[in-house]
């Protein structure tokens, strides 16, 4: 994961509530064994018609949304399955942040682990962004925890200090966990394993 640096970008607005991970990346694309290349399938069933042609009315197919690194989506974004393919697909497509009034838990955690910043804003700020529409410029600064709108208003957003540090430094949680080897070993020493799953074979 690369360190998360401040950036400016136009937004792409997709103001639909409860966008589930089956819309972000349909299950038939999950047969891959790598993380790469999923961007071409992001929102596949909304982006393309049955003949594989782009639907002109879909937000991401419109010229004003081109190059957007910030997706503005409706409430409860990322509900449904735990597939990490959802943030992989969004980042592979080019997104670095998603703005919503709320996120589903598993998606929220998965996004943070993949350099995709979930930005939670108030319904008022959300309505303002939706009103401005795709193409409006914003600035994202994780260090300052601010989302700056086109008119210069800086909106603060919450992020837990631990995830923030990991994202800013570009380090992952596994490295952190490994520092606890002796604590884990001690914990395991104090417990008897209930069984050995390998005896199933």
């Amino acid at each position: 994961m690369n360190p998360f640096t401040p950036f400016e970008s136009p937004i792409a607005v997709l103001p639909v509530d409860n966008i589930d991970t089956d819309q972000i990346i349909p299950a038939r694309f999950l047969k891959t064994t790598t993380k790469e290349g999923l961007g071409k399938a992001v929102f596949s069933d909304w982006r393309y018609d049955a003949a594989g042609q782009p639907r002109p009315d879909f937000a991401l197919n419109q010229g004003v949304a081109r190059g957007a690194q910030v997706l503005v989506a409706g409430d409860n974004f990322g509900c449904g399955s735990s597939r990490e393919h959802a943030p992989w697909a969004l980042t592979d497509f080019g997104f670095r942040a998603v703005v919503s009034t709320s996120f589903a838990d598993i998606f929220f955690g998965n996004a943070l682990k993949n350099g995709l910043l979930p930005i939670k804003v108030s319904p008022e700020v959300h309505a303002k962004l939706v009103g401005q529409g795709s193409g409006a410029e914003v600035k994202v600064d994780l260090e300052a925890q601010t989302l700056t709108l086109a008119d210069g208003t800086a909106i603060e957003f919450p992020v837990d200090p631990f995830s923030k540090r990991c994202m800013l430094m570009g380090v992952d949680e596994l490295g952190y966990l490994q520092q606890f080897e002796s604590e884990i070993a001690r914990f395991e020493g104090g417990r008897t394993a209930p069984y050995d799953t390998r005896s199933v074979l």
């Binding site: 399955s81 598993i106 998965n110 682990k113 949680e173 596994l174 966990l177 490994q178 884990i184």
Partner: peptide, 20 residues
Amino acid sequence: FGIGTSQVEMVLATQCLLQK
């Protein structure tokens, strides 16, 4: 509870997860 693939890797490696 369900976890993402990054966490699958963490559990495989350390049998632990970071949780709130």
